[in-house]
Design a protein around this nucleic acid. Structure first.
Lengths: 192, 192
DNA sequence: CCTACCGATCGGTAGG
DNA sequence: CCTACCGATCGGTAGG
């Protein structure tokens, strides 16, 4: 058993914040999870709040990276599909950071909380832009749909995916993406 | 200023649990909100956990009442519309109880948490049944859609409505219901 | 990473 | 609904 690294501490904190919530996680419990005392954690980090900031930031960065990558997929419907597939991957493969990002932001100090809200708005804007562009270029069938409302609907579905979807269930991730595109009236099963 | 009633305590607790979370709400803060000391709350209630159980139960009862009322609206698409409209009403008009029900259930003791999960499943089943029946009787257009997945999508949207919808915005509640029905491919704008 | 500790705050009770 | 209090636990520090 070698010593814990700062990375170990952040990862374990994410797991506990996501599972029990920030306020319900004590530094002593977090230490026990890593096999050391609560007070020993302070050789790795400055404060409990610092840990929350770092975990939330990791969640935000994952979504941002997905949004950036979606630009390579094209525009309109093609970009929207990349955004949806990317979001599903982030949510299912990084549950701890994502749940902390989505549910524990209210435990952040005002400055960081405002920053997170801003990051979420920027990310949501990517969905609105892709939907709006898809209406204009004809790659999305129902061009009458309001991009703002549609983006809210799609993101509501995406953020809740981890509550019911399982990789070992009847639906593959690709099929899930198609279901959401079809559900949203954004795709009809045709190519291109 | 007359004395506080037990009802006052439960209502204020719901507000604070929804806003700051159960663990971040102290009995002293709750007392201050009502103009009394934390210790004085115990003449109204047995424990902090009792308060959480009561607030969560109120949220569950509101959804259950909506599901019961939806039976009078008919079956298939008509019942689904009543379920969606009812859910939106509950979410927007009882935010404190609903947010506590949806987000703070993990702070419940194991017994009550299991009970809440069971109530949620029963409620979700009403959506599945209405969607399934609508596929069979032809009142829902895309009969190929899986009722389980569709119900998950619809409930994801409904539970997040309070995060972005405003009664003073461009969309009325009735229009919101129509948008969700259309989004879900469950309605085409035609009568019946 | 531990020992030893700090002041603050927690949920809750006895008794009025 | 208050006074006076309880033991437990909290985040965090000094010093090694």
């Amino acid at each position: 058993m070698s010593r814990n690294t700062r990375e170990d501490v952040v990862v374990a904190a994410g797991r506990m914040f996501a599972t029990h919530g920030y306020d319900a996680t004590s530094m002593r419990e977090l230490g026990r999870e890593l096999g050391l005392l609560g007070s020993s954690l302070y050789s790795h980090i400055g404060s409990k709040q610092d840990l929350l900031v770092e975990v939330v930031h990791r969640g935000a960065a994952l979504f941002q990276a997905s949004a950036d990558a979606s630009l390579d997929a094209g525009a309109g419907r093609a970009r929207l599909r990349a955004l949806i597939a990317g979001h599903i991957g982030v949510v299912l493969d990084h549950r701890d950071e994502v749940q902390t990002f989505l549910n524990e932001a209210r435990a952040l100090d005002a400055t960081h909380r405002a920053q997170v809200l801003h990051e979420r708005n920027t990310y949501e804007q990517a969905f609105r832009n892709a939907i709006g562009a898809g209406g204009t270029d004809g790659s999305i069938i129902d061009a009458e749909r309001d991009p703002k409302t549609t983006a809210s609907f799609v993101l509501s579905i995406l953020n809740a995916v981890d509550r019911w979807y399982s990789d070992t269930g009847p639906l593959s991730r690709d099929q899930l993406v198609d279901e959401i595109m079809a559900f949203a009236g954004l795709w009809e099963g045709a190519e291109q």
